[in-house]
C-alpha cells in the first residue's frame, strides 16, 4: 500500500537536503529541495509501489540541483549524466493577505498564538512550550484572538454567532 506523501517527506527530507547541499550553495540547495519534492509529489501517484523511494528522490534531486545551478549561473556544473530540460523556478504564494493583515493588528501574544495554532498547526501545549506561560493562558489568548478576529470585517470565522 502506498504511504501518504507526508511520510515520504518525513523519512527523506534530510537525505535530499544533504544531496542538494553536496552540489549547491545553501540557498540554491533550498530551491533544489523544494523543486525535488514538488516534482516528486506530482509524480508520486504513478510511482510503482515496489520502487526504492530514496533512490528515486536522490535521482530527482540530482537533476533539480543541475537545473537550479543552470538557472542561477552561466557556467555548467560538471556531471556524469545529461540534464533534463530545466524547470521553471519560482513558487507563487497562496493569497492569504487579507487574513494576515487582520492578524497583524492583534496584540503580540494573540498574534503569536494564532500564527502557531492556525498557521503552523500546533497544539496548545506545544505553543505554550515555545512561547512560555501555561497551556490555559495560551488557550485564553487564542480565544481572545478569535473574539477580536470575529469583530474584524473579514475575520477567520465566516459565521457571526457569538451568542452560542
Amino acid at each position: 500500500m502506498k504511504q501518504p506523501f507526508e511520510a515520504v517527506v518525513e523519512h527523506h527530507a534530510t537525505t535530499v537536503l544533504r544531496v542538494c547541499r553536496s552540489m549547491l550553495a545553501v540557498d540554491d540547495a533550498d530551491d533544489a529541495w523544494s523543486e525535488t519534492f514538488l516534482a516528486a509529489l506530482r509524480a508520486y501517484p504513478d510511482l510503482p509501489e515496489q520502487a526504492n523511494v530514496e533512490a528515486w528522490l536522490v535521482t530527482i534531486a540530482r537533476r533539480k540541483a543541475i537545473d537550479v545551478h543552470r538557472a542561477a549561473h552561466r557556467d555548467p556544473l560538471p556531471v556524469a549524466e545529461l540534464p533534463e530540460t530545466p524547470t521553471e523556478l519560482g513558487l507563487p504564494g497562496v493569497d492569504d493577505t487579507g487574513f494576515r493583515e487582520i492578524v497583524l493588528e492583534l496584540p503580540e501574544r494573540q498574534r503569536q498564538v494564532v500564527t502557531y495554532r492556525y498557521g503552523a498547526g500546533m497544539s496548545y501545549s506545544e505553543i505554550a512550550a515555545v512561547l512560555g506561560g501555561s497551556v490555559d493562558a495560551t488557550r485564553r489568548a487564542a480565544a481572545d484572538a478569535r473574539k477580536n478576529l470575529r469583530k474584524a470585517p473579514s475575520g477567520v470565522s465566516r459565521q457571526e454567532d457569538e451568542h452560542g
Binding site: 502506498k2 504511504q3 503552523a120 470565522s157
Partner: peptide
C-alpha cells in the same frame, strides 16, 4: 491517513493552512 491515501489520493501533506477555518470553528 493511509486509508485516505488509497481511497482519495496519496498526495497528502501536513498542511494546516487549509484547515484554519475548520480548526477555528
Amino acid at each position: 491517513l493511509e486509508s485516505l491515501a488509497s481511497t482519495l489520493s496519496p498526495r497528502i501533506l501536513h498542511a494546516p493552512g487549509r484547515l484554519d477555518v475548520a480548526a477555528c470553528e
